[in-house]
């Protein structure tokens, strides 16, 4: 049984300088209640993938092709109003920086009520009750009085909890979380991560956790997708991918984690930087930065399948 089935998704940005293929042929699927990690450097297309799912790609970007089936319904090309009704109710999203996402001049209570009233008649009284219950669930003390507070009256971690509570408010089947802990202190990151995992498990909500940090994802997700230059270059169960990555890029990401390094040794860095989407190299886009690259890599990389994993590489690392 699948909740979400993404096939050959292509989201392109039609700019003056040319077409940037931010997401270029992404396919994956998600079971109900599953937690999926989506990892990549900035510019790899991971956030654009997330926004494509809820139909909120900013112009000049748009979904150029492929299919997103959510609970049996096709989301690509769905009427804007039906898609709108789905957003927040069945698919919710948590953003990176709650400082920027919450409206500074409306109280938390008002903003939560708006999120509830967007999906049916809810009296202000009932909305306040439900908001209070949800705030309490995400660990905000004295929730009933906090409803009257403005976002700036919360600490960074508390603000993100509010945003998470808003995402959970309508009991969605899927939450897309776009780097929700990146802007927070490390200690609060760990807390929120653990709570998020528990909340998803309790409510049976599937979760797509988008992050540039493989370590965060490894502690949370069941499966992981690694994106590079708009494509999924490796996918598989978190344990297997971390133990023995197939793609040299995943290897590079792992080696650059502080936790993986030997004490006293320098952190390994992937040489070079992410390529411009407007000028991708021929063949494998990672080739210019890859230690294993050779003449074969100028051709498009083949899909390598290993049990429940796959990679796009001419020279997969594990046999």
């Amino acid at each position: 049984m699948t909740l979400l089935d993404v096939t050959d998704l292509r989201t392109h940005f039609f700019t003056r300088a040319g077409v940037a293929r931010a997401v270029d042929g992404v396919s994956f699927s998600l079971a109900p209640g599953e937690i999926l990690g989506l990892v990549g450097e900035s510019g790899s297309g991971k956030s654009v993938t997330g926004f494509s799912l809820i139909g909120l790609v900013d112009p000049p970007g748009r979904i150029a092709g492929g299919s997103i089936r959510f609970d049996g319904q096709e989301l690509v090309g769905m009427a804007p109003d039906r898609l709108r009704a789905l957003r927040g109710r069945r698919i919710a999203m948590v953003f990176q920086d709650p400082q920027a996402t919450l409206n500074p001049v409306l109280t938390i209570g008002t903003q939560m009520a708006l999120a509830l009233q967007a999906h049916g008649r809810v009296t202000d009284r009932a909305a306040a009750d439900r908001a209070t219950a949800m705030l309490t669930r995400v660990g905000i003390p004295e929730a009933a009085t906090r409803l009257n507070n403005y976002p700036h009256e919360f600490s960074g971690g508390m603000r993100q909890r509010v945003a998470i509570a808003m995402a959970l408010l309508n009991g969605p089947d899927l939450i897309v979380a776009d780097e929700p802990t990146t802007a927070l202190d490390v200690s609060i990151q760990a807390q929120i991560l653990a709570e998020m995992k528990a909340l998803a498990r309790d409510s049976g909500t599937a979760l797509i956790w988008i992050s540039h940090d493989l370590a965060t994802v490894s502690s949370l997700a069941d499966r992981v997708l690694v994106m590079y230059a708009g494509r999924i270059v490796e996918s598989g169960p978190v344990g297997a991918v971390l133990r023995a990555p197939l793609h040299p890029y995943t290897r590079g990401l792992l080696d650059s984690l502080p936790a993986m390094a030997q004490p006293g040794q320098r952190l390994a860095q992937i040489p070079g930087s992410a390529p411009s989407l407007l000028a991708l190299p021929q063949g494998c886009p990672f080739a210019p930065r890859c230690a294993h690259a050779d003449a074969a890599c100028t051709a498009p990389p083949p899909r390598v399948e290993r049990a429940d994993r796959h990679a796009l590489c001419h020279h997969p690392l594990a046999p």
Binding site: R87, A100, H119
Partner: peptide, 18 residues
């Protein structure tokens, strides 16, 4: 309209009119 505040409100399913 270009800020994350609006994007977040859209993600919550609010109509553009709201």
């Amino acid at each position: 309209m270009l800020t994350d505040t609006v994007k977040f409100a859209r993600a919550a399913g609010l109509t553009d009119a709201t």
